[in-house]
Nucleic acid binder design. Structure first.
Length: 176
DNA sequence: GCGACAG
DNA sequence: ATCTTGTCGC
């Protein structure tokens, strides 16, 4: 259980969430270091960011672990935007695993839009966080997708919500 | 003032 | 992120 104190501001997600994420990794290290993952999927961006340093990069630096940013929406940066052209490209993705690079106005490849599962229409936005190539990141994410959101992230989402409901009910349960 | 806005 | 309505497939 953690408490968030910073508000959500687009572009500053790391300042809100990274302390809790680092704490989670630290707790796992102490509880059973043999379970330490070789790579972390982060719900947010890596270098696909206004200042080239999203929450996935922060977490990678602070933990020393390889990280991959997997965002569910395109953060509009360096000329990239979810416009008609972009949606057209996304529409051309055929099979799960198909992707296209996200090249900004600067000429830099900041990430990739991946059709992560066969059924998904909307791509996920993959970007390098730390100590991994974009190509490896795209392959790894695709290999973990049964649905649109990679299973590790999806399970974390589902189970954390369950935990919140459970603890809320626990608090409000009348005492005998 | 207007548009954009990871989660 | 959260909420809500409706549709479709298993």
């Amino acid at each position: 259980m953690v408490t968030l104190d910073a508000p959500y501001i687009a572009g500053f997600l790391a300042f809100r969430e990274v302390p809790s994420l680092v704490e989670a990794v630290k707790r796992l290290q102490e509880k059973d270091s043999s379970l330490m993952p070789q790579v972390l999927f982060v719900d947010g961006n890596g270098v696909l960011h206004h200042r080239g340093f999203g929450v996935a990069c922060h977490l990678g630096i602070l933990t020393g672990l390889p990280t991959i940013g997997v965002a569910k929406n395109l953060l509009q940066v360096d000329g990239l935007e979810n416009n008609e052209s972009h949606r057209g490209q996304a529409k051309e993705l055929q099979m799960g695993g198909d992707f296209f690079y996200l090249k900004g106005t600067s000429g830099n490849v900041l990430g990739a839009a991946l059709k992560s599962s066969q059924k998904s229409v909307k791509p996920v936005y993959i970007s390098v966080g730390h100590k991994i190539s974009l190509e490896a990141a795209v392959k790894l994410v695709h290999s973990c997708c049964k649905y649109r959101v990679p299973e590790p992230t999806r399970q974390a989402d589902i189970r954390s919500r369950e935990f919140c409901v459970k603890t809320t009910n626990e608090k409000q349960k009348p005492q005998d």
